[in-house]
Structures are given as C-alpha cells and as structure tokens.
C-alpha cells in the first residue's frame, strides 16, 4: 500500500446515480480482486473507500461508485485528464481458489465481483453470477460478466428486469446448485447469503477513516467477540466469521 496521484482517463454515468471512473496508476499492478483504494476527493477531508471493479492492462483501475453525498457528487464532476490521489491497494480481497464459484452481488456491491470473476475464469473455473438491483435503471455490469463467460442471472426488486425479488429468489428460481460463494452487497443480502451458504466469503462495507487498520473506526465483531477491522482484516471475511 502506498499513495499515488492517478490520472482520470474516463468518468461517466453508467446507471441511475452510478458512475464509472478509470484511473491510470501503477497501483493497478499490485491490486487483487476484492481490494479497495482510498480516494482523496478535492475539497473533502476524509478519503472515500471504493472497491476496485477491474484491473485493466495492469495499469488502469476501474472504480464504480454511487453518488450518495457531496463527496461522490464532486467525484462525478471530475474530468478526464484531472488527477486524484489514491491510497492503496488496501485490505484483504477475495481468494482465488481452485474451484468453480457462485458470485452474488447486490447494487454497488457488484463491481468488485467483476475482477473476481475475471481471475477465476482466467484460472479455468466456471463462474455463475447472480446480480441484484432495485430496478432496471440501476443495473450495472451485466454485459461485462457475460463477456467474461459467466452464467449471469439478474434479479430486480421491482421486477422490471430478470427475476422479481432478491438474489436469493433468483438462485431458487434458476435452481442454482453451486455451493461455494463469493458475495458483496448490502447487509440484508449478506445475511441471507450467510444463512443459505456455508462455504465462501463475504465482503463488507464500512465507514472508515484511515483505511489501513490504525484508527479502529470500522470494527466488527467475530463470533467469539473479538474485534476485526473491516479495512485491514477484511473487507473480505469467511462466511460465518463475522457477526453481521
């Protein structure tokens, strides 16, 4: 992990309130799937932790972010050619084990699963991706997962696209039998995934300050009551390890 000023090579809206930014940075070569970077947005104090969606050519990082407040709104205004200071790569990402995987993503939890899919496919494994969104306007990355060669199933809460309901509804409806899961998304989804599957990993989201394990701002508890830092010990944890 280190800091580096990275040049923006793309920054565009790809779905409702959702933007994609591409940055040219040497941090890309060091970044694994499921890791994140801390982005210094001009004019804002704390960095924004954002998961890495894709590592391209070993020299570009793709970040997909939702505009939820003033800081991310400022990020969305930034132009190609401008620079952002990044701190990363941070955290423990998804392992790439020698097996086929079921990826389950919800909303802006979907992006880190794309690089995860790519690395599993590159290793010769079959990847099934279940992607859940609120509505058709919020869908992201479906085609990118398909282009990698994943079997892709989409669920929307309002039924405007794919299976109506949650990712768990899509898994039932399509009779998905995989039992090893890698998942990232909102807490209720991770809870449902953790009660339905025993094997695999979930990636958590948290408010952070330092992003490197020093400040204890983002702690969670494991089943034994020990504290774990989402930023440093996670954000990826084995299913069942953390009290969600």
């Amino acid at each position: 992990m280190r800091t580096e000023t990275a040049k923006i090579t793309d920054n565009r809206k790809i779905a409702a309130d959702t933007w994609k930014m591409v940055l040219k940075t040497s941090l890309a070569a060091e970044t694994g799937c499921g890791q994140f970077v801390q982005v210094q947005v001009p004019g804002y104090f704390l960095r924004r932790p954002i998961s890495v969606c894709r590592v391209l050519d070993g020299e570009h990082l793709v970040l997909i972010y939702k505009v939820v407040g003033d800081g991310t709104a400022r990020m969305a205004e930034m132009q190609v050619g401008e620079s952002l200071d990044l701190f990363g790569p941070l955290g423990h990402g998804f392992p790439v084990e020698d097996r086929n995987v079921l990826l389950i993503g919800g909303g802006v939890g979907v992006p880190p699963l794309l690089e995860t899919a790519a690395r599993h496919i590159q290793a010769g494994h079959h990847v099934t991706a279940i992607l859940g969104f609120n509505d058709a306007e919020s869908i992201i990355l479906e085609q990118q997962f398909r282009q990698l060669g994943c079997d892709v199933y989409v669920a929307t809460m309002d039924g405007s696209y794919g299976t109506k309901g949650t990712v768990m509804d899509a898994i039932r409806k399509n009779d998905i039998q995989e039992e090893y899961v890698l998942s990232c998304g909102p807490l209720p989804m991770l809870k449902a995934v953790s009660s339905a599957f025993q094997k695999g990993y979930v990636s958590l989201e948290a408010r952070m300050a330092c992003g490197m394990g020093a400040c204890m701002g983002c702690v969670v508890k494991d089943q034994e009551g020990e504290s774990l830092r989402v930023c440093k010990d996670g954000p990826v944890f084995a299913i069942g390890k953390v009290v969600l």
């Binding site: 104090f45 704390l46 300050a209 400040c215 204890m216 702690v219």
Partner: peptide, 23 residues
Amino acid sequence: RFGNPTPRIAETPMGMLNAIGLQ
C-alpha cells in the same frame, strides 16, 4: 475495551468526528 458501536466516524468540514471509545 471494545469501544463504542459503529458508525464511529463522520466527516465534517475540514475535519472529522470520531467516537471510537478507547478500544
């Protein structure tokens, strides 16, 4: 000490709030 429940961190203009709780 485990400290306080989360969220423990909030951004402010030119600063931040923390309530770690001496973890």
